[in-house]
Design a binder for these strands. Structure first.
Length: 268
DNA sequence: TGGTATGTTCCAAA
DNA sequence: TTTTGGAACATACC
């Protein structure tokens, strides 16, 4: 369940239960997901108190006291779950954070792509991430500057976390439809109106995702209603809500891509 | 059985 | 140097 709105939803769901709690133990059941080595991570986490839970791009960030940070990236199939004395760990549980109140936070991840990072240098971990699309710094002027520097196609441009941090395959396709821009359009050829539309579309689509508690497109993530409001994602062959043309489904940069060939302008 | 999946990284080639 | 394509990571669903 992992793009900006799903991660933000997760943060909001778990923030109250985690803030102010002390970590008494950490165990990884698939150590390759943990940086540094699980043994070191356990030593670093034990006894630390979670002071604040927030989001940076698609990372869940826990500020630790007296020092350090715990970052969790859900990648393709990760999710968090609570476990108390009465429940047992579900299938695909990959890590257990035991808390002082006899509760445990579980990291569940069928595909094992997720990452758990413990670090005293947050800046080093997040240094390559681009602008937060819902922050005040992400203005149309800033987007213009980012776009003008590169001769890339819009779809891979928007998916690049070092440019704008948080969009994934779903919200990229949705934003491009909202902006009426074809995914193969050249980034550096957009005019002012295009950029303005794209800027507004990115923000509105992400906000809608958060408002609807994210999207649930398969068995992995139960919550969320965004999937009932997709305009193009996963709707290949179905009618465009705006013009009735069949939504086209193709591949761009190894990613499934859906768009309306009639509504979305191909800027070459 | 094979194709596909909300992500990221590394490498080779253009 | 920039951009793109392919493979890899690993598992489950249809």
């Amino acid at each position: 369940m992992p793009e900006l709105p799903e991660v933000e939803t997760t943060v909001r769901l778990f923030r109250d239960g985690l803030t102010g709690r002390r970590i008494v133990d950490f165990r990884s059941l698939w150590p390759r997901q943990v940086t540094p080595a699980a043994k070191t991570a356990t030593r670093e986490l034990r006894g630390k108190t979670i002071e604040r839970v927030w989001r940076r791009a698609k990372f869940i960030v826990c500020d630790l006291a007296p020092r350090g940070h715990l970052l969790i990236h859900l990648r393709m199939s990760g999710r968090l779950e609570w476990m108390d004395g009465r429940t047992s760990a579900p299938p695909h549980t990959r890590a257990v954070f035991s808390l002082e109140d006899n509760r445990a936070l579980l990291f569940v991840d069928a595909r094992k792509f997720g990452r758990i990072i413990v670090s005293n240098d947050l800046e080093r971990v997040t240094r390559n991430l681009g602008v937060e699309p819902l922050s005040r710094e992400f203005t149309a002027a800033r987007l213009t500057e980012l776009l003008s520097r590169r001769a890339r196609r819009l779809k891979p441009f928007l998916l690049d976390q070092s440019v704008i941090a948080g969009l994934g395959n779903i919200y990229t396709d949705e934003a491009l439809f909202e902006a009426r821009l074809h995914p193969l359009s050249r980034a550096d050829r957009l005019d002012k109106e295009h950029v303005s539309a794209l800027h507004g579309a990115i923000r509105s689509v992400l906000r809608e995702g958060i408002r609807r508690h994210g999207a649930s497109i398969d068995w992995i993530y139960p919550g969320g209603e965004m999937q009932d409001h997709f305009r193009v994602y996963g709707r290949g062959g179905e009618a465009c809500h705006a013009c009735n043309t069949a939504i086209q489904s193709t591949r761009v940069g190894q990613r499934g891509t859906s768009f309306c060939p009639s509504c979305q302008v191909w800027v070459k």
